[in-house]
Design a protein around this nucleic acid. Structure first.
Lengths: 180, 180
DNA sequence: CTTTAGATAGAACGATCATTATAATTACAC
DNA sequence: GTGTAATTATAATGATCGTTCTATCTAAAG
């Protein structure tokens, strides 16, 4: 991966996350990156493809994060897999995502047509997360899987209007009560 | 309230909710409403003020909805106030809000400056909801208030990627378990 | 050194944006 | 019916959008 391309993806993700997709122009992105416009178009065919790559990159990091911390918490604690996922998600929230879910935001801004590539990618991401949760503990019922999904989405959304520390603390308490 | 103004607010809310605030132009709104552009500017000083009025109108309807159904459920059930709020919110979700929270979406799209009028209005809305929850049962602890907020936000967010009926069913189950 | 590929700045494209000006038309109160 | 206010259609404003073109420049590889 070219360093320029990586820089563009990094800067784009920050700007999109802070201001939304439609309100950030490509000019702002290249200016902020200190990279020429034609270099952006050399790496990405369009703004839409840039967004797709930003989402893919963030999904990879999120899933890696979830995998790493649920495995890390595996040893030495009596927490169930579901509680560990909640804790790992809260850590992600606290470190990288106190302004909502970038995927849902993308879906909302491009939600006109449900077959839009961006919308498809977001749906796939949510499905992947659900599968990850299900496969982390196959003894859990579909209802319990939905419950954990709801808890994670709730934590993400609530930290947009409420102190993240408070949300994280309460989320873990609820996870322990529901899945402990 | 002028009928034209009401029509504009109605159409704007639908379009903004379906496509986002930045991606909907005023031209689309007046075309869809069958109303002249100058009439829009006669009723609203700017797009920002139109959005503020859309949010205010939706907040009023949401709070009326919550008030009405929590009171309705009051008689004849053994549900706690917190469970009744969850049920009322789920009904709103099912009827009007299966594509996320319009307020959070506004905050996300205009979240650049935290003193932006739209952001301020959204923060006030979330605070108002929290106060409503707290005052519905003063015996509940601050932690329990946060828990219910998280449950409501989670239900709203999850119904963007999961069948709303499923989300509603599970949300009520969780509310009964947590606050029954 | 020469070649080749990638990166640069800047201008230009047509489209769309929010907003305003103009002028004609409708509707309603007195 | 006359006058006042609201609504209309249309065009124009200047700004910004995504995208492309051109032409110069840098950097690395042979």
């Amino acid at each position: 991966m070219s360093k320029k391309k990586e820089d563009l993806l990094h800067t784009s993700e920050i700007l999109f996350y802070d201001h939304g997709f439609h309100s950030i122009g490509l000019k702002k992105i290249v200016t902020e990156s200190g990279i020429a416009m034609m270099t952006l178009y050399n790496h990405f065919a369009s703004k839409e493809e840039l967004i797709m790559n930003v989402l893919q990159r963030r999904e990879d990091r999120y899933m890696d994060h979830l995998n790493f911390f649920t495995n890390l918490l595996d040893e030495g604690t009596s927490h169930s897999a579901f509680v560990r996922i909640a804790v790992a998600h809260c850590r992600w929230l606290n470190d990288y995502a106190s302004k909502g879910c970038l995927f849902l935001r993308a879906k909302e801004e491009y939600g006109a047509t449900s077959d839009h590539p961006i919308v498809v990618k977001v749906n796939e991401h949510k499905y992947r997360l659900k599968q990850f949760i299900q496969s982390s503990d196959t003894s859990r019922s579909p209802e319990e899987v939905i419950s954990l999904c709801l808890l994670l989405e709730g934590a993400t959304a609530l930290s947009e209007s409420e102190n993240t520390d408070t949300v994280v603390q309460q989320t873990i308490k609820m996870a322990e009560r529901l899945f402990g």
